[in-house]
Design a protein around this nucleic acid. Structure first.
Lengths: 159, 159
DNA sequence: TCACGATTTGTTATGTTATAACATTCATCG
DNA sequence: CGATGAATGTTATAACATAACAAATCGTGA
C-alpha cells in the first residue's frame, strides 16, 4: 500500500465496486462467493499486485479463515476459474483481474526487477497459435501470455 | 518412446544431428557444452517430450553425472539460456527446442490429458503486447506463450 | 611450468509451491 | 428427518527450486 496518498479513498471505492460486481455475478450464475473466497478476492484487490498463495493464506489465517494451504489454493482456483483473478505462471502468483466483466485472454508484463505486474490486453491470440491448434485438431481451453522484462523504473535504477 | 516403430532409426539420426549442431554452435560461440550439459540435451532429444528437472536429474545420476538438484537446474539453465531447450512454465518442465537454429519466440500446445507438448511457431508477439510494452516503456526480454487444452486423442478418449 | 582467475561441478541444507486423501460441516431439498 | 452435494478443515507429503560454499577444472599469461 505504498504511495496511494489521497487516492486512497478512490481505491477503497474501487475495491468495494469490484467486490459488489463479483457478488452480483456470483448470484446471477449461482456461484457461491463464500467468506474465504470473498476475502481472498478482497485481499488481491486491496494489494493490487501479484501475490503468492502462501502470502494470501497468511492473510486469510489472520482473519481466522483457514490456515492450511488447500484453503488458499481452493479459493484461488475458484477465483481463477470464474475470471475474478488470474494466475501468473512465470512467478507462481495470483492477481485480481483488471476487467472481470468480459471474457478475455489476459497478458502480463512482469518486471524482474521489482516484481510488479501489469495486465495488458491481447487481441484473441488466434493468430498463428490458433491456426496451429486448428491444423492439428488441438482444442485450446486456456492461453497464457506473459512477458518478462524491466519496467521503466528498474531500467533506470539497475539494482 | 512409444510408437516410434520403424522411424526409430530416423529419430536416432535426428538426435545425432541436433547434438552435432549444438556442438558446432557452442564451439563457434565459445560456449562449453560439458558432459552434463550435453547429456541433458541428449536426454531431452531422446525422449522428445516435456520433462521435469528431477526426472532429468535421475537420468543424469544413472550416468554418474551429478545427483543433486542444482546439477540438473544448472544444465537446464544453460540449455534454455542459449536456446537449445525451452522451459514450459505451465507445467514446470523442459523440452528440447524444435528449431534451435533461429531466434524465435516459442509457443506451446500442452495437452492436459496426456501431458504431450507441441512447439508451434509464433509471429513476433509484437501485436498488442508489444504495443502495450512500448507505450509504458517496459523493456521485454522474454515472452511466454502457452496454450492448454486437449489433443485430438484425448478429446476422443476422455480419461 | 606455475600461479591466477574464471567457470563449472559437487554437496549440504533449506526454502517454496502444490496436492492427495479423508474427515467434517453446512445448506438444500425431497 | 435424512440423503445429497458443495465447501471447508486437517494431516501429511509430494514436487519444484535455490542459497551458499567447497572442490575441481581449464585456459592464459607471467
Amino acid at each position: 500500500m505504498t504511495a496511494i496518498g489521497f487516492e486512497k479513498h478512490d481505491h477503497n471505492r474501487c475495491i468495494a465496486t469490484a467486490l459488489a460486481e463479483a457478488e452480483t455475478r456470483c448470484a446471477d450464475q449461482k456461484l457461491q462467493l463464500t467468506p474465504v473466497r470473498r476475502r481472498a478476492l478482497e485481499i488481491l484487490l486491496q494489494r493490487h499486485r501479484a501475490m503468492g498463495a502462501y502470502e494470501i493464506l497468511d492473510l486469510l489465517a489472520a482473519d481466522g479463515l483457514g490456515s492450511q494451504p488447500p484453503v488458499a489454493y481452493r479459493a484461488l482456483d475458484f477465483l481463477v476459474q470464474h475470471g475474478f483473478a488470474h494466475r501468473i505462471e512465470r512467478i507462481n502468483a495470483y492477481t485480481a483481474c483488471a476487467h472481470p466483466e468480459q471474457d478475455h485472454i489476459p497478458a502480463f508484463l512482469i518486471c524482474r526487477g521489482c516484481k510488479a505486474v501489469a495486465e495488458a490486453e491481447t487481441e484473441l491470440e488466434q493468430g498463428r497459435l490458433g491456426a496451429a491448434a486448428q491444423a492439428t485438431g488441438f482444442a485450446i481451453e486456456r492461453i497464457v501470455v506473459e512477458a518478462e522484462g524491466l519496467c521503466p523504473a528498474c531500467q533506470e535504477h539497475p539494482a
